[in-house]
């Protein structure tokens, strides 16, 4: 039960938008989250897999078989749509049982299986209701049940949480993960919410302008982004353009920094990348050392457990996150906190 894109390209007719040369694989029981800004091609990837559009180049494989010519109804993939698309004229059990109906399963058995599936998502008592009576979260649960009841070969989730309130979103995120895990099914989740992607994806793929920029575990993406786009898209970051001035030294717009320059040649343009929580407040030091900065607080946001501070320093700004409650005027950026990214 694997889903695979093999060098897939697709362009929307009359435009230059689409996806270009995308290859990725989702293993059995694995949840891959695809993130990207709107227009990045992430939804197109889902449409290609579901069969709503056909790839211009490349192959789409389910369990190793090319499904390029297969109509959506032959692909056996469960899809949860952004607005759920529950059939308003069918009761919940009829909605969930619809995939069984078109497969010729009798009414009594269909109903039993549908009610059982509804119970698994906590909606067993509402089997005879119509979708119009449900809240967004409940519709979400039913949509999930409907997509899974016919034991599909893969589960496709298209921005499943975007229509929900913030509080409910976290709850449903866990619910989706629970149901997905118990079904042990290869799952593709499309979202624009990076927090959502990092928290439930086994792997996360970042799309940008139709191309797959990086794919990896949430930790890979957060700690070792391949370029400034991914660094900025995933979490908070400091990004300073600069130049390598010698082994272990770079010069940036805010000043000199000491860091590992392995693989970079002298004079090469780079972007220095530092996560705000790696910047450490220090006591003011008299000597101007690389990696030590003093400045004034430009913005100070209280976020409960931490404060997120923008420190204005000569030449630029340093964003840091700290538990400290007192005034902050000087900071240190340890060499191992700095990663050098290529200038795109």
């Amino acid at each position: 039960m694997t889903l695979r894109y093999d060098a897939v390209s697709y362009t929307y007719p009359g435009t230059s938008i689409g996806v270009f040369d995308v290859s990725l694989e989702i293993g059995r029981g694995e949840l891959l989250a695809i993130i990207g800004a709107s227009g990045s091609g992430k939804s197109t990837l889902l449409k290609l897999l579901a069969g709503f559009v056909k790839p211009a180049n490349g192959r789409i494989l389910i369990d190793g078989k090319d499904v390029g010519e297969l109509l959506p109804e032959k692909r056996k993939l469960g899809v949860v749509f952004q607005n759920y698309a529950l059939f308003p004229h069918m009761r919940l059990w009829e909605n969930v049982g619809y995939a069984l109906k078109v497969r010729g399963i009798g009414k009594a058995e269909r109903r039993a299986l549908a009610v059982e599936m509804l119970a698994r998502v906590g909606m067993g008592a509402r089997a005879d209701d119509l979708p119009g009576m449900l809240s967004g979260g409940q519709q979400q649960r039913v949509a999930l049940a409907r997509a899974l009841v016919f034991e599909p070969r893969g589960l496709l989730l298209d921005e499943p949480l975007s229509a929900l309130d913030a509080g409910l979103r976290v709850e449903m995120r866990d619910e989706i993960l629970r149901v997905q895990r118990s079904a042990g099914i290869a799952t593709l989740l499309v979202t624009h919410d990076q927090e959502e992607a990092l928290s439930i994806g086994d792997k996360v793929a970042v799309m940008h302008e139709g191309r797959l920029v990086q794919i990896g575990t949430p930790r890979d993406l957060y700690e070792t982004p391949v370029n400034a786009y991914v660094a900025a898209f995933v979490g908070q970051s400091n990004l300073w353009p600069g130049k390598v001035t010698g082994t272990g030294r770079i010069d940036t717009e805010i000043g000199a920094l000491a860091c590992d320059t392995k693989g970079k040649s002298n004079g090469e343009a780079v972007i220095a990348f530092v996560r705000p929580e790696r910047v450490q407040p220090t006591s003011p030091s008299a000597v101007a050392e690389p990696g030590h900065f003093s400045g004034t607080i430009e913005a100070d946001r209280y976020l409960g457990p931490i404060r997120r501070i923008d420190l204005a320093v000569p030449g630029g700004r340093i964003r840091l996150e700290t538990h400290l409650r007192g005034p902050v005027t000087s900071v240190e950026i340890p060499p191992d906190a700095i990663r050098l990214l290529p200038v795109s």
Partner: peptide, 12 residues
């Protein structure tokens, strides 16, 4: 959307 949903559920 409804027709797409029905298609993914296997309806001709």
């Amino acid at each position: 959307e409804y027709e797409h949903a029905a298609a993914t559920l296997g309806a001709s």
